[in-house]
């Protein structure tokens, strides 16, 4: 009986305040969709870091004959066999280094051809113009600086290039995107809370007769407040369900099927369903608790118990 009574009160309240309820649902849904999206983006960045950091190298490019004329780093001429040996020996002595591979001019030419194929520029390139290089795999990709400071400016070395710095630009961009998403989320959630406070206030005002009688006959504070708080929580929960559905729909139609980015962008290792599913309970909990909290705060001010 009690539950039925409370439930019918919630239904009446939500319908009486339909426009405000709708606004609450939409703003909660939007903010939590952003919240979930931003959580997933963090996962995505983490996953991409793990995947790419495994594959990236630090490249030590060695001087060739044509560099010797144009590049001040190579003023002393093309790299010699002795220089190469000492560089290799030094690299192998360093503890941060995991693995070193040598790429000859011919191999570099072959890779170049593979990458740029039949472009007009590729046709004019000869193996002579390619650079020999050492590809250094680090135990920890963050320790690029150790290699750079040891080999930059050394005889026979043209430049030291860290592939991680290229990726890091991407990750920084994604990081900012994430921050922006969370900022918008915070604003939307604040709007949602203000809407809830207002909804509860209107609701409490329109039911002041009932609540007045409830007080006089000795209904407990909880019993008087529960319908209002549940009203806010139920509206929020509907928003949370919408936000969760949105994430599921995006994962299904944009990543897996439909637009199917996962097959179109095989280089990016997208987060899977497990990541999406684990966010949903969190979103639902937030969608329920935050409006309930906002409702409670509103009642403290607008409903005498």
């Amino acid at each position: 009986m009690r539950a039925q009574f409370v439930l019918s009160e919630i239904g009446v309240g939500l319908r009486r305040n339909l426009t405000m309820t709708f606004a609450v649902i939409v703003s909660v849904a939007l903010s939590l969709a952003l919240f979930g999206g931003s959580l997933l983006l963090s996962d995505q960045v983490g996953k991409m870091k793990g995947y790419w950091y495994d594959k990236i190298n630090v490249s030590i490019y060695l001087c060739n004959k044509s560099n010797a004329e144009s590049d001040p780093n190579c003023a002393k001429g093309a790299v010699t066999e002795d220089q190469k040996k000492s560089i290799l020996a030094d690299l192998q002595k360093m503890t941060v280094v995991d693995k070193v591979t040598y790429e000859s001019q011919d191999e570099a030419y072959k890779h170049y051809k593979e990458q740029f194929g039949n472009s007009p520029l590729a046709a004019s390139i000869t193996p002579d113009q390619m650079q020999e290089s050492y590809r250094v795999k680090l135990k920890n990709p963050e320790q690029y600086q150790v290699i750079a400071s040891a080999f930059n400016g050394r005889d026979g070395v043209q430049s030291v290039q860290d592939q991680k710095s290229i990726l890091d630009n991407l990750f920084t961009l994604l990081g900012y995107l994430n921050l922006a998403a969370r900022g918008v989320m915070a604003v939307m959630l604040t709007v949602a809370m203000l809407l809830i406070v207002n909804t509860v206030r209107v609701s409490a005002f329109s039911r002041r007769r009932e609540t007045g009688i409830m007080r006089l006959v000795g209904a407990s504070g909880f019993y008087i407040q529960a319908p209002f708080i549940m009203e806010a929580a139920v509206a929020g929960l509907i928003g949370g369900i919408l936000a969760s559905s949105f994430l599921v729909v995006v994962q299904y139609f944009v990543i897996d099927h439909g637009v199917s980015l996962s097959t179109k962008l095989p280089l990016i290792n997208f987060v899977g369903w497990d990541a999406v599913i684990t966010k949903i309970p969190l979103i639902l909990a937030v969608s329920f608790l935050i409006p309930a909290l906002a409702g409670l705060l509103a009642l403290r001010k607008y409903l005498k118990v």
Binding site: G218, A219, Y223, I224
Partner: peptide, 11 residues
Amino acid sequence: AFAQEVIGKSQ
């Protein structure tokens, strides 16, 4: 009945 419902009296 409202006066009884809100203090949790049985149906």
